[in-house]
């Protein structure tokens, strides 16, 4: 088995030190390319955990356990070290692992990224689904997006509040919610990142010591959602769908019909899995390495 070097596939990623505050995680998730997940390292640059947008939202919306934010207040929670909010990372690999192994791991488990470290757990970079999809630009697979989308699209009605949206994302464990009108037509989309940015901007705008998450999340969802919806059509080739997500830097999108009605949802990892099922892992590996 020849192991292809990982070097050319490695991507840099946002990191945070373990003693830095949760606020810093939100800052990182809110600016630049809005990373959904941030790796947490110790003072020696060793990977000790991960914090995702959903995890941050859970804490801030007070949806886990007693809700620290409810008990101690939002501002104090934001100042708390990320150490107690992060999750353990279970997708860590050594730098000598083959790219094929990572591809198989991600596709088998529907996991969109892997963390690459050296023998002493120092971060070398990440490999994620974008790494593979970027290398497949221009390819077509004779396979329709509609055949591989998830038909259980969870949506939000246009009259919902930020709180409704945040809770739905946490409870349904999704990263984005298309907003639909009474006839099922997509009118907008909101992501976890949108809600986190909103909470952060409110936290900065308000001087008061006690920020009330209940109060600020009563705002209508339209205040934070995007009207510009990146979407796919069911008859589109998987390759086209992948490129649209890459071009617009979104990790998933609704699949809609000619009347703008929602038919399903497709994500980058869904597309990667679908491509593997269509062309086979060996062909894909050759394409990626080429």
């Amino acid at each position: 088995m020849i192991i292809m070097s990982l070097q050319k596939f490695l991507t840099k990623t946002a990191t945070l030190e373990i003693n830095e505050p949760l606020l810093m995680a939100l800052e990182l998730m809110s600016y630049g390319r809005h990373p959904y997940r941030i790796l947490v390292t110790n003072g020696e640059g060793k990977v000790v955990g991960i914090i995702t947008g959903r995890r941050a939202l859970e804490v801030l919306m007070g949806v886990r356990g007693t809700g620290m934010a409810k008990k101690k207040g939002l501002r104090r929670t934001l100042e708390e070290a990320v150490r107690i909010f992060m999750d353990e990372s279970h997708e860590i690999f050594l730098e000598d692992v083959g790219i094929e192994a990572l591809l198989k791991f991600m596709v088998e488990n529907s996991i969109g990224y892997t963390v690459i470290v050296d023998q002493s757990r120092r971060l070398k970079g990440i490999i994620h689904e974008v790494t593979f999809l970027e290398r497949l630009r221009g390819k077509r697979f004779n396979a329709s997006t509609g055949d591989f989308m998830s038909r259980e699209a969870i949506t939000l009605s246009s009259g919902a509040s930020v709180r409704n949206g945040g809770r739905a994302m946490v409870e349904k464990r999704v990263r984005r919610l298309p907003i639909v009108d009474s006839e099922g037509r997509v009118t907008g989309i909101v992501t976890i990142g949108d809600i986190l940015r909103f909470i952060l901007s409110e936290a900065k705008a308000q001087d008061s010591l006690e920020l009330d998450i209940e109060e600020i999340s009563r705002m209508p969802i339209e205040a934070v959602s995007s009207k510009k919806v990146v979407a796919a059509r069911p008859e589109e080739d998987l390759g086209e769908a992948a490129e649209r997500m890459l071009d617009n830097e979104v990790s998933g999108m609704p699949v809609i019909d000619a009347e703008n009605r929602i038919l399903g949802i497709i994500s980058r990892i869904d597309v990667l899995k679908a491509i593997v099922s269509v062309v086979g892992i060996e062909t894909l590996k050759a394409e990626i390495d080429g």
Binding site: G49, G65, T66, M68, K72, E80, A81, I84, F85, E88
Partner: peptide, 15 residues
């Protein structure tokens, strides 16, 4: 580590 974090958050304690 996961269990400790779960406990901390359930009882709402801070560092």
């Amino acid at each position: 580590s996961n269990y400790l974090r779960m406990h901390i958050e359930l009882v709402g304690k801070m560092g």
